[in-house]
Computed example of a mutant assay.
Amino acid sequence: MGERSILITGCSSGIGLDAARTLRARGWRVFAACRREADCARLRDEGFESPRIDHGDMESIATGLAEVLAATGGRLDALFNNGGHGLTGAVEDVPVEGLREIFASNLFGWHELTRRVIPVMRAQGHGRIVQCSSVLGYGAMRWRGAYVATKHALEGLTKVMRLELRGEPIEVVLIQPGPVTSDFRFKGRAMFEKYIDWEASAHAEMYRTELVPRLYGPQGKDSFELPAAAVTQKLIHALEARRPRARYRVTLPAHVTWWAGRLLPGRLVEAITAQF
């Protein structure tokens, strides 16, 4: 096999950036996409091919993928859908406009890019599509309702795609991280400020004592947090194994949440989860 190519989205930092650097070192031709042109320019200075792809901008998805395919002669071995953002706040405080924006970034854009990539992979006779989901794709956590909704939807779409592509030479894989070191919390401030009128909320005291300090205080590590490299190691297996798994869980909380949901009564799981 010649040089393998992969398009990775959300490469400005965290999981995407670590994956891009590691896979390039392993001999992959990496197209490291970012939402902002300034981040793309920084990665180009680092030697990457870096198209601008903003999951919330359908035109950038079309032009960014076209740029990749023009560079590869119309082939693409793998796609790693990554990136997106959160919207912290009680479900009742999240306006529909906020849900629309987070779904556009965390689901609709991923779906559009994936739909465009599948015919390319089908025509060339092989391909891997890896979706970066979350422990919150099958679990739940207070104040994360909007993000949880996007990841549950992503998991559902991905499971159905696996069923529909059975017998075809395209593997679709889920990676389900738990707490991973990134700028995710810091980047979530803009969405919080844009959509959550927390001082007028019935939960104002909870925002004041829990959520606002968490968003704006020192960005310490979460319990059981792992570096982004832990996700990359699972990604390597998903991309390079002859028969990859359907899903790869990363971090202890991801494994515990999976098994708790299958072995414990639902009310007990809720009682435990409500402590976090």
Score class of each variant (00 low, 15 high):
126 H>W: 12
84 G>C: 07
74 G>A: 05
231 V>S: 07
248 Y>R: 07
189 R>I: 13
178 G>N: 12
158 T>L: 06
197 D>R: 09
165 L>K: 12
125 G>V: 04
17 L>W: 08
228 A>P: 07
120 V>W: 08
20 A>C: 07
132 C>V: 05
241 A>Y: 05
202 A>H: 06
113 L>Q: 03
111 H>Y: 08
224 F>C: 12
174 L>R: 11
17 L>P: 08
210 E>Q: 14
54 D>Y: 04
219 Q>L: 03
24 R>N: 01
208 R>M: 09
179 P>W: 02
192 F>Q: 05
25 A>H: 09
238 A>C: 11
103 F>Q: 01
157 L>V: 02
113 L>R: 00
73 G>I: 04
271 A>V: 04
237 H>Y: 04
266 G>R: 11
105 S>C: 14
101 E>L: 14
194 K>Q: 15
203 H>W: 14
18 D>P: 00
18 D>T: 06
168 E>F: 10
132 C>E: 09
34 C>W: 02
233 Q>I: 03
44 R>E: 14
15 I>S: 06
49 E>H: 08
195 Y>T: 04
18 D>Q: 12
77 D>A: 02
269 V>F: 02
182 S>F: 01
25 A>C: 09
21 R>W: 04
248 Y>K: 12
159 K>C: 03
134 S>P: 05
121 M>L: 01
29 R>V: 07
123 A>H: 11
257 T>D: 06
203 H>R: 14
166 R>Y: 10
264 L>N: 03
99 L>W: 09
21 R>M: 11
67 E>H: 12
99 L>T: 01
94 V>S: 03
185 R>F: 12
17 L>C: 03
87 L>I: 09
211 L>F: 03
211 L>C: 03
197 D>L: 00
206 M>I: 10
180 V>I: 15
10 G>S: 13
146 A>P: 01
224 F>I: 02
169 P>K: 12
123 A>G: 08
114 T>N: 09
240 E>P: 01
21 R>G: 05
144 R>S: 13
51 P>T: 10
11 C>T: 15
60 S>C: 02
201 S>W: 00
149 A>I: 04
225 E>K: 02
99 L>D: 06
99 L>P: 01
60 S>G: 02
269 V>D: 01
125 G>W: 08
60 S>W: 10
3 E>C: 05
16 G>V: 02
181 T>G: 13
132 C>I: 15
244 P>G: 05
52 R>S: 10
83 G>N: 10
169 P>D: 14
216 Y>F: 15
17 L>M: 06
221 K>T: 04
125 G>H: 05
185 R>A: 14
141 M>H: 11
146 A>S: 13
192 F>I: 04
28 W>M: 04
266 G>H: 07
170 I>D: 02
157 L>G: 02
223 S>R: 15
244 P>N: 00
85 H>L: 14
50 S>M: 04
233 Q>E: 15
50 S>R: 06
61 I>L: 12
88 T>H: 06
78 A>I: 05
131 Q>A: 12
268 L>F: 14
126 H>F: 11
203 H>C: 05
3 E>L: 10
148 V>T: 15
177 P>I: 00
270 E>P: 00
49 E>S: 13
172 V>F: 10
230 A>P: 03
227 P>R: 00
254 A>C: 09
111 H>R: 07
204 A>V: 09
40 C>I: 06
213 P>R: 10
